[in-house]
Simulated assay, not measured.
Amino acid sequence: MGLRNAQQKKNQQIVQKMIKALDDDPYEPRRYYDLGSMLTEMQSFQQAEELFLKGLNVFEKEPAKQNILHYGLGNVYYSAGMYTQAVQQFDLVTDQKLRLDSLMMLAQSYYAQQQYQQALAYALTVSEKRPADPSPSALLGDCFLALGDFKNAQNYYDKSLAKDPANVRVNFQRGIVALALGEDGSRFFQQVKQTDPKFYRQNKERLDDIATLIKDRQDPRE
């Protein structure tokens, strides 16, 4: 409890400094973004939303400066589980430096809404533009797994793990795919167990159920 209170106090101090920085220069969009992102991290979603909307209004006649604010507001909505609103904001980002990040967030937003084909399209674009980044490949694996395409899921999880071999969640997902394909997934689950024993314990009991569901989807019964 003491550690939690200490972190909350530290966060409040950071927020106060950011508020002062914004007051000192209210015409710098990055100040809105930094403060809004901190509020989002603290799950103060309403405050973050209000701040970004205020910033968008301030720069109403300067659309180039609105890009980072649309991106920040999209992250607020995504974090709050408001995926339709998140998509609307990420779609408005045109700045080239932020565009790929926005495309990745669009992919994640569509995935969260179980719109896997749309998520695939955006994640594939990011994967092609950022071949060294393991995240797009991992999301592509998630999409194909959700669609029951285990071979493609295997392919993209392997690509992601080639760049980030110790990733706990991707190793777990890769193990599930191995089970679905009738292969031995033990080495992936062993990696999870070694890297994050708590994650493994929390998810171990789900293995049998997940494997059963995947196999039923692969070979549905009449």
Results as ranks from 00 to 15, higher is better:
Leu3Asp: 14
Arg4Ser: 13
Gln7Glu: 13
Lys9Pro: 02
Lys10Arg: 12
Asn11Phe: 07
Gln13Phe: 00
Ile14Cys: 00
Ile14Val: 14
Val15His: 00
Gln16Arg: 14
Lys20Thr: 14
Ala21Gln: 09
Ala21Asn: 09
Leu22Lys: 01
Asp24Val: 02
Glu28Lys: 12
Pro29Lys: 04
Gly36Phe: 04
Met42Gln: 13
Met42Val: 01
Ser44Thr: 03
Ser44Tyr: 02
Phe45Met: 09
Gln47Tyr: 04
Gln47Leu: 09
Ala48Pro: 03
Ala48Trp: 00
Glu49Lys: 09
Glu49Thr: 12
Phe52Tyr: 12
Gly55Tyr: 01
Leu56Phe: 01
Glu60Arg: 12
Glu60Tyr: 00
Glu60Phe: 00
Ala64Pro: 00
Ala64Ile: 08
Ala64Trp: 04
Gly72Gln: 07
Leu73Ala: 05
Gly74Pro: 08
Val76Thr: 10
Val76Tyr: 01
Ser79Val: 02
Ser79Thr: 11
Gly81Trp: 02
Met82Phe: 05
Thr84Trp: 05
Gln85Asp: 14
Gln85Met: 05
Gln89Gly: 08
Gln89Thr: 04
Phe90Asp: 04
Asp91Cys: 10
Leu92Asp: 06
Val93Trp: 02
Val93Asn: 03
Thr94Glu: 15
Leu98His: 03
Leu98Ile: 06
Asp101Leu: 09
Leu103Lys: 13
Leu103Glu: 15
Met105Thr: 07
Met105Arg: 09
Leu106Ser: 06
Ala107Gly: 12
Gln108Leu: 13
Ser109Asp: 06
Ser109Asn: 07
Ser109Lys: 09
Tyr111Trp: 10
Gln114Asn: 14
Gln117Ile: 13
Gln118Trp: 01
Leu120Thr: 06
Leu120Val: 13
Ala121Leu: 10
Tyr122Ser: 06
Tyr122Pro: 01
Ala123Asp: 07
Ala123His: 05
Ser127Trp: 10
Ser127Pro: 02
Lys129Asn: 12
Arg130Ile: 07
Asp133Pro: 08
Pro136Ile: 10
Ser137Trp: 05
Ala138Glu: 11
Leu140Tyr: 04
Asp142Ser: 14
Asp142Leu: 11
Phe144Arg: 12
Phe144Leu: 11
Leu145Trp: 05
Leu145Glu: 09
Ala146Met: 06
Phe150Ile: 05
Phe150Leu: 14
Asp158Ile: 02
Asp158Glu: 15
Lys159Met: 10
Lys159Glu: 06
Lys159Gln: 13
Ser160Arg: 08
Ala162Glu: 12
Ala162Phe: 06
Ala162Pro: 11
Lys163Gln: 13
Asp164Phe: 11
Asn167Ala: 13
Arg169Gln: 13
Arg169Gly: 02
Asn171Gly: 05
Asn171Glu: 02
Phe172Gln: 05
Arg174Gly: 08
Gly175Ala: 03
Gly175Ile: 06
Val177Ser: 07
Leu179Lys: 10
Glu183Leu: 12
Asp184Ser: 12
Gly185Lys: 08
Gly185Ser: 10
Ser186Pro: 04
Phe188Ala: 07
Gln190His: 08
Lys193His: 13
Gln194Gly: 02
Thr195Ile: 01
Thr195Trp: 05
Asp196Ala: 09
Lys198Glu: 14
Phe199Thr: 08
Phe199Glu: 10
Arg201Asn: 10
Arg201Ile: 11
Gln202Lys: 13
Gln202Tyr: 04
Asn203His: 14
Arg206Asp: 15
Leu207Ala: 04
Ile210Ser: 03
Ala211Asn: 10
Thr212Cys: 03
Leu213Gly: 15
Ile214His: 11
Ile214Ala: 15
Gln218Arg: 14
Asp219Cys: 06
